[in-house]
Amino acid sequence: MTDMKTLVTIDRRVTLKWLMGALAVGQLAACGDGAKGLSWAELEAIKATGVGKDPDLINPSVPWPLTLTAAELEIATDLVDLILPAEGDNPAPSKVGVPAFINEWVSAPYPDQHKDRVLIVNGLAWLDEESKVRNGVPFIRAEASAQKLILDDIAFKDKVKAGLEKPAEFFGRARSLTLGAYYTTREGWADIGYIGNQPGTGDYPGPTPEAAAHIKGIIEAMGLKYTPA
């Protein structure tokens, strides 16, 4: 295991190396972020056509080409599965199409998605660089435990390692996209317990007896009156 002192040195090296790589890739945004002044490469906006103002709503299609490379998708796959590992009957995000969704998202010709693309594309490259420096191998070749050590520095908002604010921002977006994509699938619905989108006949049944009893208990424990309507 590397001691604290070496880690710090290595980190500075990573930063420098990353900066050089980014410079080589293209124009570097001049604005700094935070004390370390690290900036990520701006990417050219995607110019594909969007869905337009009157798309076929019943048979939707994604009109824009996907842009992530195979290598980027591999990193994304490992990342999303670290964010929300499989558990019991609940599959890992990569098993329900989350990496492909992230590709669709960052390839979309819209301003919000463009911002995410800059974060995600740079962030995936950062993970790889960071892993090479820390572990001597690209991110996807690193042991899960080593991958997690990297995430531990960027995944917790009160414990972001100094200088890693930008990677932390990237991670926040990656987490948000992963959760959104995952919990909108049937598998995600099963995990979170969403049981709607089911047309029914007759009156709306309202809370189940169990749900009603539960809220009654809560309301009464607060000294309030339970009057269902």
Binding site: L82, I83, L84, P85, E87, N90, K148, L151, A155, F156, K157, R175, S176, L177, T178, L179, G180, A181, Y183, T184, G188, W189, D191, I192, G193, Y194, I195, G196, N197
Partner: peptide, 25 residues
């Protein structure tokens, strides 16, 4: 309501791994 969780489901959450799954729920 308990609706289709949607893309905002991760709002305000932190960390990763099985604790994150538990937090979402």
């Amino acid at each position: 309501s308990f609706g289709d969780p949607g893309m905002g489901v991760g709002g305000g959450l932190d960390g990763y791994g099985s604790s994150l799954r538990a937090d979402v729920k």
